[in-house]
Simulated scan of single mutants.
Amino acid sequence: MHQAEQIEAALLAHPSVARLARGYASYLPGRQVVGVRAEERVGVSVVLRPGRPIPEVVAELRDVVAKVAGNVPVDVTVADLEDP
């Protein structure tokens, strides 16, 4: 599994993430992983479920990505909040 796919799976497993959003993408053979750019610096774009403080969730998502990508800078963009 490509690193971008591993990051995608880890983010989608987080209870506050409703889905990944456009803004970043990784292009793989026959597929693109929308919402994740995995290079020297990782960028992710997410839509969150409401109910938790956004800064706390962003910090958790950085940790989730670091477990997959290692010690690289991680940019987390909160593109939207899901309607309850």
Results as ranks from 00 to 15, higher is better:
V64A: 06
I7V: 15
L61I: 04
Q32S: 15
E82H: 00
D75C: 00
H14T: 01
R22F: 09
V34L: 13
H2F: 12
A69T: 05
E82M: 07
N71F: 08
A13S: 13
V44N: 04
L12A: 04
E40G: 15
G51V: 01
K67T: 14
T77G: 14
D63H: 11
E56H: 14
R41N: 08
V42L: 05
V72S: 09
A66I: 07
G30I: 01
I7S: 07
G35S: 10
E56W: 04
E39V: 11
D83S: 14
V36M: 10
S16K: 05
R19A: 00
G70M: 08
A13N: 02
H14L: 06
A38W: 07
R22C: 08
L81V: 00
S16F: 04
P84A: 13
R22T: 13
D83E: 15
A25Q: 13
E40M: 15
E40V: 15
V64E: 07
A25C: 11
V36A: 10
A13Y: 01
I54E: 00
E82P: 09
D80W: 01
S16H: 11
A66E: 04
L12I: 01
E8S: 02
L28R: 11
V36K: 02
R19G: 06
L28T: 07
P50Y: 03
V58L: 05
A69V: 05
V74S: 03
V64W: 09
L12P: 06
Y27Q: 13
A4D: 02
P55K: 06
M1F: 12
V34M: 13
N71Y: 05
S16R: 10
R37H: 11
V36Q: 10
A13G: 13
R37A: 11
V68K: 02
V74M: 02
R31N: 14
K67W: 07
H2D: 15
I7H: 04
S26L: 09
P53W: 03
D83Q: 13
R52A: 14
A10H: 07
V47A: 02
R52Q: 12
P15Y: 00
A18I: 05
E40A: 15
E82Q: 03
V47I: 12
S26F: 02
R41K: 11
H2L: 09
P55R: 10
A59T: 14
R52C: 06
V78K: 06
L11I: 12
H14F: 05
R41P: 00
V34K: 12
A59R: 15
V57E: 03
Q3Y: 08
V57D: 08
P73S: 01
G51Y: 05
Y24I: 06
R62W: 08
A38T: 11
P50N: 04
A25H: 12
R41T: 13
R37C: 01
E5D: 10
R49W: 14
G30P: 02
Q32W: 14
P50G: 03
D75L: 09
V68R: 02
V78Q: 02
V44E: 01
P15M: 07
V58F: 02
D83R: 15
E40S: 15
I54M: 07
P29M: 06
I54A: 04
I7Y: 07
R41L: 09
D83H: 14
L20F: 09
V76F: 08
V65R: 14
Y24W: 15
R49P: 12
V72D: 07
V34G: 08
D83T: 11
I7W: 04
V34Y: 10
P53T: 02
A4C: 06
